[in-house]
Design a protein around this nucleic acid. Sequence first.
RNA 1: GGAGGAGUUCCCGAGUGGCCAAAGGGGGCAGACUGUAAAUCUGUUGCUUUUCAGCUUCGAUGGUCCGAAUCCAUCCUCCUCCA
Length: 405
Amino acid sequence: MGLYEDLTRRGLIAQVTDEAEISKMINAGKATFYIGFDPTADSLHVGHFMALCLMKRLQMAGNKPIVLIGGGTGMIGDPSGKSDMRKMLTPETIQHNCDCFKKQMSRFIDFGEDKAIMVNNADWLMSLNYIDVLREVGACFSVNKMLTFECYKQRMERGLTFLEFNYMIMQSYDFYMLFQKYGCNMQFGGDDQWANMLGGTELIRKKLGKDAHAMTITLLLNSEGKKMGKTEKGAVWLDPEKTSPYDFFQYWRNVGDADVIKCMKLLTFIPIEDIEEMERTLQGAELNIAKEKLAYSLTELVHGKEEADKCLEAAKNIFGGGGNSADMPSTEIPAAELEDGAIGILDLLVKTKLAPSKGEGRRLVQQGGISVDDVKITDPNAKIALDNEVVIKKGKKVFHKAVKA
RNA sequence: GGAGGAGUUCCCGAGUGGCCAAAGGGGGCAGACUGUAAAUCUGUUGCUUUUCAGCUUCGAUGGUCCGAAUCCAUCCUCCUCCA
């Protein structure tokens, strides 16, 4: 089975400009393709992860990836799919974020000799001359046509600044530049990027009379149509400092039944045959097997085998009974903060960040949501003796260890 | 540039002098039910406090008043119509 067929079967491909041509090119490892990343935060998150996986798959098949960091376009902000204007980032922040991206990506992509390159569009966008751009590129875009695109339609209601309106032109220009400088003949991106990407292929055709291709990846949506990889606390990050491997693992362990198989297909490198087999055979509670595989596999990809093993082990210990584990998240409590070797339950909850305030902690206790070493705590004034360590359980599935230090 | 309108808690959105820490909905958290799922039902949802109560919060800053989200002034931001 060719790469393209595998991608199709996994449901990764959303839209393509020329199926036959693209399929032929990537199966043969002839594509030089790029994916753009806007440096809006100092870590990649799950939303970027699919793109990284795709790059990896393609690279393994011999294609050459170009990672385009949007140091220049990041200064504008993509209006697609956003209801409000994004706040502008300072050049310093953008630079910092770019650096962080680079570091994280090298885990997935082999940047070895001629294998892949990383470029920053600030390198050419920043020095552009307004008049030149208008003459050279501006003439190729029809405002009438742009305004008919879905991504702008929504914003026509709420207002769209000229700044944001230009995002598409910048992105098209990127493709045009990459095509000329590196022979980049294909662009990949999220499905919400389709219009922007087509802008690039058209610009190349108009300016150079050559064909370039674009392909979009299915957006990772859950069964309710919401973007995945977001929690109330924010995005699920790939940076272990921002989202601990344990939390990362648990996020995937807890996806809804309806989403497990889809996530496996889209995100993991588990052979498609195996996934389809699971899809056929696993029913109801058995899906937990698949969830565990999903969580393990992704944690392994992002944080390495060692961490993944730890997370799996921790989960087994915690949820399989026992309720103790060396690898559950923990907080050290300095001995100096103990009174007679004990600490008030509310203080403990706040210290371990299980509750943001004492008031909320009190509520949790009163509603029966807190256990310490498997003993339910019902008195907000309870003192917890901390000889060595205790395991605090909040709700059904949040475990945390407090260790005397 | 001119004329109007709007800014309320995580989000949407009520509230036009005291009964307002502020209706309702969404979201979140917890409980029941379960499979670490979904759906449903219940409770809860500014901070401190056992209680009483205190403190901070309705775009910003000043003011009127015993008392202001609510009235006045100035400023900031956004929207609509006209140019």
